[in-house]
């Protein structure tokens, strides 16, 4: 359940995905070959359901057409001269953050703040491990749109982490 939740960022969607996965598992139980553990098999089914769900939710939002993804509305991050408005600061000992549970809470919080389309593309790429060609297919967008969405997601996530976790450290 937490696996689905961290990827779908929506409790009812995550519950649906888990239920659908369990249902699919029961229906397809005879296909379980025993080559992997039951858990790995179940998570595999769950992954498919999550990908389905991300695809549907990003298509269900025509008000936010993915094809509109442009780099023009990035002025939050860059001035007209192309410089960073707020240059990335030095992150002190990021390695240590990986040992702190609170860091992952901050990370999940930042993921939740991403624009929906960027979040779908980013989750498929970084957490479900899909290539951009597959993401294009899943979300019905072009490759360059996909790269822009991922770029935007990374810019936002980076800025959010800096604000919520790495702030207060030395800045240039």
């Amino acid at each position: 359940m937490r696996f689905a939740l961290s990827r779908l960022r929506d409790r009812s969607a995550a519950e649906d995905a888990v239920q659908e996965a369990l249902l699919a598992a029961i229906q397809g139980a005879e296909r379980f070959t025993g080559q992997s553990s039951v858990r790995t098999w179940l998570v595999g089914i769950l992954k498919h359901k999550i990908i389905d769900n991300l695809r549907k939710s990003s298509r269900a939002r025509p008000s936010e057409p993915a094809s509109d993804a442009s780099v023009e509305d990035l002025e939050v991050f860059f001035g007209s001269d192309g410089h960073f408005v707020e240059p990335p600061g030095e992150w002190e000992s990021p390695e240590k953050a990986l040992e702190e549970r609170r860091f992952f809470e901050a990370l999940e919080h930042c993921l939740q703040g991403l624009p929906k389309n960027a979040a779908s593309a980013f989750t498929l790429r970084e957490m479900m491990g899909l290539g951009t060609d597959e993401i294009c297919k899943e979300l019905g967008i072009s490759a360059s749109n996909c790269w822009v969405l991922l770029y935007r997601a990374r810019l936002s996530l980076r800025a959010c982490l800096e604000r919520t976790w790495f702030s207060g450290k030395a800045r240039p």
């Binding site: 937490r2 696996f3 961290s6 998570v43 990021p94 953050a97 992952f104 990370l107 999940e108 957490m127």
Partner: peptide, 8 residues
């Protein structure tokens, strides 16, 4: 960090 997110 995303790869290290708690993951079953």
């Amino acid at each position: 960090a995303l790869n290290a997110l708690p993951d079953p």
